[in-house]
Amino acid sequence: MKGPILIVDTGTGNLFSLARSFERLGRPPRISRDPEAIAGAGILVLPGVASFPAIARGVEPLRAELVRRVRAGTPLLGICAGLQVLAGASEEGPGQGLGLLRGEVVRLPGPLLPHMGWSPLRRTPDPMLLGLGGPTVDPEMYYAHSYALPAGTAGTVATSFHGIEFAAVVRAGSVVGVQFHPERSGRAGAAFLAAFLEWAEGVAG
């Protein structure tokens, strides 16, 4: 692995819980918003407890470096609003995403919003997801969101459901985005992060 895991601080995330999750896996991350740190990172993580406009503002100063690193093949994991900002735009409000994923973030129909709590992950047979849960049981992950990418988004490898089916895990090139919070999804979430790291290390060679 070249370079550390870097949690990108956009001024909006729950960075502490995420950092602890990687520490528990024996991989303490760095946290920074410095473009030079992003340039030197082996794996990038873009967290988000944020509205779309807030995280779009947060990534703006880092846009060029983030896009450059991803285009160069550095693995990046976007979480919740950190997934949404990988797309170009959102119905939630103004702001320009990174445009690394196709499609626009839409508002879920409800009936209750936000989609708050544990919902099962409907997986395709993607290698990153195969080890999660039991052979017949879908792993349950924790969600807290009112907006999501549609299930038809290019690269969708798992979905979940709240009023409509939506993209729960998207993978495109070296980018992975998850709508749930792996750092708050108990053992299932930790297993996902471990699987992501294993995949990322393979990608990064």
Binding site: A50, S51, P53, A54, L113, M116, A144
Partner: peptide
């Protein structure tokens, strides 16, 4: 709070 961190917060 909702504007900065999202309504779920």
């Amino acid at each position: 709070t909702a504007a900065q961190y999202g309504t779920q917060c």
